[in-house]
Write a protein that binds this DNA or RNA. Structure first.
Lengths: 227, 227
DNA sequence: TGATATATCTCGAGT
DNA sequence: ACTCGAGGTATATCA
């Protein structure tokens, strides 16, 4: 029966794989999931375990009657997690069943979709040429024409950072080699744009636009919303 | 007493914060840590909770005697995680104590340090001008002079990808505006360099160098090693 | 399989 | 408090 196993134990841990890491002896939570994955938690930080092995992986347990001994967890790439258990304080297993999964709203794809259906956000008279306009180095988020008919490549990000400006720069360089499109200018659109990204964009003649996601969504047909 | 709390419960979850997310009812593991953080796990994926709230945050529990009701977790940014508990199947708390923490070896900082003390890796007669050489757009990992006295900016990465080449390119552009330094060429040093990064580097006249971390560490005083 | 882009990215160091 | 960079990033998509 697939189930989650919770072990509280005094243990030390050694990981040898993409790096080498060591955890001195202390009491920790060992979390073993149905897929065989193992993670080792201290009682701080919600998200990240101190150490872990992602699935697919297999565990060999060499322990005595009290649960003391070693767990050796290995994956296909021969990364190894060795847990030396000195004392087991708790050990329980619980059947959870299959999870129906998470429903999300407000990620970049939604922002891009909203902007595609509201190109007037960029300026009066703008029209969308194509969403995910394909190029040799990947798709441009939005290819538009402004009121004057000039081509504009739009890069959409939830949070605008320097990488996004670099990405748009590469697209612009490529698009401007196409005589049917050139000259192409760039617009960097995000809910929030970091100062450094703004500086780099301006240095490269790229226009920045901060977008109000909630306002944009508000204009949308409520029937199309996820919630 | 600070401790970790493990709850197995049938619950649904709503998160409203950086995005909006919803988890339909199912049996899950709720992990509450000493710092107040809460994470919700299904029994797949070692690492990632389905939903979570990072510390610092506070939880208000409105539950009946059987534990059914709602947990409302909020943080300072007014992000909100609402857990609606229908049935509690397990609830236990365990004292862990303070964790001594993780000791790592093999990260970028070590590689940079090793290269700084072994600039001859780049070529005979090289000398280090400065580690973390400051510029307006961030520090250059290593600034060196080669045997001929020419200035070289070195970008060190554990894994060399396209971003690293972009980063070095920005530095070179800036450094070459300084008449005291120019002309400055670039070296991209990493334990492993992706083909795509190699192509971009070569296109920009940047030299690539793959570094053998273990061999480099082997030349070092064994007493200085972490393990 | 490899490359690319996203992420409630997390986390830590430095300013 | 904020910014910036590294990460065993993880994860999804697409070639």
């Amino acid at each position: 029966v697939p189930c989650v196993r919770l072990v509280i134990a005094r243990c030390s841990v050694d990981y040898v794989g993409r790096l080498t890491a060591h955890l001195p002896s202390a009491t920790r939570l060992l979390l073993v999931k149905a897929d065989g994955s193992v993670s080792i938690h201290a009682d701080d930080r919600a998200y990240k375990p101190l150490n872990w092995m992602s699935p697919p992986c297999t565990t060999r347990e060499d322990v005595d009657d009290a649960g003391a001994g070693t767990w050796t967890v290995v994956n296909k790439a021969a990364e190894q997690l060795v847990i030396t258990i000195e004392e087991v304080l708790h050990d329980s297993s619980h059947e959870l069943g299959v999870d129906p999964g998470l429903v999300k709203d407000g990620v970049e794809a939604h922002l891009q979709h909203l902007l595609a259906t509201h190109v007037e956000t960029f300026g009066a008279g703008w029209r969308l040429v194509r969403r995910e306009y394909p190029t040799a180095i990947g798709p441009v988020d939005l290819l538009c024409r402004d009121a004057a008919g000039a081509t504009v490549a739009v890069e959409v990000k939830r949070r605008g950072e320097i990488d996004g400006v670099e990405q748009l720069t590469r697209y612009l360089e490529l698009l401007n080699r196409d005589p049917l499109l050139a000259p192409v200018r760039g617009v960097f659109a995000a809910q929030e744009i970091k100062a450094q990204a703004r500086v780099l964009a301006s240095d490269r003649g790229i226009e920045c636009l901060t977008v109000d996601y909630d306002a944009l969504r508000g204009h949308d047909d409520p029937g199309l919303r996820l919630f």
